[in-house]
Structure formats: C-alpha cells, structure tokens
Amino acid sequence: MSDEEDTVADLSFVAWDEILAPSGDSMEVGNDAQWTVSSCKAGNGVQKLRDNKIDTVWQSDGAQPHTISVFFRERMFVECLCFYVDYEDDETYTPNRVCAKVGTMLSDMTVVSTKDLDQPRGWITMPLTDDSGRPSHVFMVELIIIANHQNGRDTHIRQCKIYARSEPAVLPLSAQESLYTFGGAPLSHFNTLR
C-alpha cells in the first residue's frame, strides 16, 4: 500500500469538526437538527451523510434537482455547510453545480451561495453568511444539487456538516444583578412587594 493510499484510508475516520470549523467559536450543529433528503436508494439514505465515514454515500434516486434539507428546532446563527464529494470514485454521480438556501420557513428561503465544481475531490464549503459576512439566523438550510458531471442523473454526497456560531456567553452575575436593580427616588417604592 502506498503512502497516498494510507492517507486516504486514515481520512475515513478523522475528527472532521476540528479541521472544518470556520472559526474558533464555531461548532458542528448537525446533531441538533432533523435531516431530510429529496430521495434515496435503498441502503444509501440520509444516515450515510452523518456517519463520519467518507467511504459511504447518500445516493439520490429520482429527477433533479436533488436536495438535502436541515431543520433546526430553534434559530441558529449558521456560518457554513460543508460536504464531501469524490469525482475519482463517483464520476457522473458527482455534483458540478450546487446552491445553498437559508430561511426561517419554506416561503422565505433565499439563495446565499452557488458553486460550480470541476471534478472535485474533498470537502466543499458553502458559506451561509449574509452580504456583510454575518452568520444567517435561520431555522432551515437547504443544499440543492442542480446538475451532475457528464449530465448524470443521481448524485453521491459522502458526508455533510453544518457549522454555527456558539451561543453568546451568559452575562456575569454582577451584570445580571445590575439589570434587575432599581435605583433613584421615583422607582424606590417599586423595590418591594406587599
């Protein structure tokens, strides 16, 4: 086995979150979401997108466009969506045009990122930020595979991760106390309950 083969074999079980996180205060939030796909072949469902193994694939089964949808229970400040593809192994199943949409409900989904891919192999990052570079504050994210290489019909995606900003830190106790203290003569009579 060559060094290159050793490296590829070792990558199938890497802790990707440490490598892919866009910033120090970002975290992978895919486990906090419900994932759905537009279609899948038997045995190659949505669970293959989240198993942390790049040697397994989600394979669509149907007409294009193919979609991967991510639904959160609460609004998240999402920064990017990363997915793994491999043209060398998948050829016509490899996407060559994709876009990402974000929104708070189906009726307000907007396209925030579009990419054309030329025989990709590895992680593709789709930014989910607004025009000023701030994370989008959304309930839903959708990756849409518009076209495949060589006009392939079905698609393969090997892994999918979504990164969001960590929640803002809780105020220190002294700051919390100052939010609830009354001061001055006009408010002093509201300071106690009868």
Rank of each mutant, 00 (worst) to 15 (best):
A33G: 06
Q34Y: 06
Q34A: 14
W35G: 02
W35K: 04
T36G: 01
V37K: 13
V37L: 07
V37R: 10
S39P: 07
K41N: 11
G43T: 05
G43D: 07
N44D: 09
G45L: 12
G45C: 10
V46Y: 00
Q47R: 08
K48L: 08
R50A: 12
D51K: 01
D51A: 09
I54M: 15
I54E: 03
I54T: 14
D55Y: 06
D55F: 09
D55H: 15
T56Y: 07
S60P: 03
A63Y: 05
A63W: 02
A63E: 15
Q64S: 06
P65L: 05
P65N: 13
H66D: 02
T67G: 01
I68N: 01
S69E: 13
S69H: 14
S69G: 04
F71M: 13
F72C: 13
R73F: 05
R75Y: 03
R75W: 01
M76D: 02
M76S: 06
F77P: 10
V78G: 04
V78R: 06
C80G: 05
C82E: 13
F83K: 13
Y84R: 03
D86T: 01
E88C: 02
D89M: 04
D89E: 09
D89H: 13
D90S: 15
T92G: 00
T94D: 03
P95G: 02
V98W: 09
V98N: 08
A100L: 08
K101P: 00
K101E: 11
K101S: 12
V102E: 12
G103D: 06
T104K: 14
L106E: 14
L106P: 01
M109I: 01
M109T: 04
M109H: 01
T110Y: 01
V111R: 07
V112A: 01
S113M: 07
S113R: 08
D118S: 15
Q119S: 12
Q119T: 12
P120G: 00
P120D: 00
R121C: 07
R121H: 12
G122D: 11
W123A: 08
I124L: 06
I124N: 10
T125F: 07
M126P: 09
P127R: 10
L128M: 04
T129I: 05
T129Q: 08
D130S: 09
G133C: 10
P135V: 06
S136P: 05
H137N: 15
V138W: 05
V138F: 08
V138T: 12
V138D: 05
F139P: 03
F139E: 11
M140V: 00
